[in-house]
């Protein structure tokens, strides 16, 4: 029966959406409080001016932008926020096959007339929906920024830009989901897949961050999905469709390889 695994995955994991949504809301409230403190903002501006090297590394843009409310929001919310959502994407990727395979449950599950490809596809789709749910609640939380006068004055924090920035988080999260799912299929061991998935996220972040600080860094950064996430640019200029499509294509390729490998390999060996 089609859709059973999809529905069951949603039924078992839906709680993660309000939990993550709540965490995101707390983060938004923190930023609003931070921005409402004019003294702190002034100090921050000065600091940005004197630490342009770090600003380039972590802020993802120029010091002038980093000193703005939108720049601060980009650094403290969209940078770390993506890491948090990717943390869930790693856990979700493991639950596509690795968790059940290591627990020895796949024998029973696949004794039902369930094609292997459908198991992987339905789980990937269900976790994608959950990630969309998390991002939707993130977007809802971000509506609270309307209560912040400082943010309201910044043209880069319009509802449209915020919406685009949230949408921009989706392809990267899905990429991590499919990458970890593929690792689970290839490695069979949950912990190995988890370590590779986490290393992929942290490694990409570090490669992107450190790559900004060196001249030839752009070549290395090409291997990091954070380069294509480029939240500072999206916050200032809107979505970069080429990056978005590129990430989606890579996600689809990784998912297809995961399906193909899982379909063709032995289980529980």
């Amino acid at each position: 029966m089609s859709g059973i695994v999809f529905k069951e995955t949603l039924r078992r994991n839906w709680r993660i959406v309000p939990i993550y949504g709540g965490i995101m809301a707390v983060l938004v409230i923190y930023i609003i409080l931070l921005l409402s403190d004019s003294k702190l903002m002034e100090q921050l501006n000065q600091m940005m001016g004197s630490m342009s090297f770090l600003v380039t590394m972590f802020g993802g843009g120029d010091a002038a932008f980093m000193g703005t409310p939108a720049g601060l929001m980009n650094y403290s919310f969209f940078g770390w926020g993506l890491l948090m959502v990717c943390g869930y994407a790693v856990a979700a990727g493991l639950s596509v096959t690795a968790n059940e395979e290591e627990a020895g449950i796949l024998d029973v599950l696949l004794s039902a007339p369930l094609p292997r490809w459908r198991l992987v596809v339905e789980k990937l789709l269900a976790h994608s929906v959950l990630i969309i749910g998390i991002l939707f609640l993130t977007w809802v939380s971000l509506l609270m920024t309307g209560f912040s006068e400082t943010l309201a004055k910044d043209p880069n924090t319009s509802l449209g830009r915020i919406t685009e920035s949230v949408i921009n988080m989706l392809p990267s999260s899905l990429l991590v989901l499919s990458f970890t799912a593929l690792m689970g299929v290839l490695c069979r061991r949950r912990n190995t897949a988890m370590m590779i998935g986490a290393a992929f996220v942290v490694g990409s972040f570090l490669v992107d961050t450190l790559g900004r600080s060196i001249q030839a860094g752009d070549v290395v950064r090409a291997f990091s999905y954070f380069k294509y996430y480029d939240s500072a640019n999206v916050m200032q200029h809107g979505l970069v469709w080429l990056n978005l499509i590129g990430l989606v294509v890579v996600t689809l390729v990784l998912s297809a390889v995961a399906v193909w490998r899982f379909k063709d390999r032995e289980l529980g060996v």
Partner: peptide, 11 residues
Amino acid sequence: VEIRKRIGFLP
């Protein structure tokens, strides 16, 4: 898949 429709399995 056809086979698994018609069998019951206890590991």
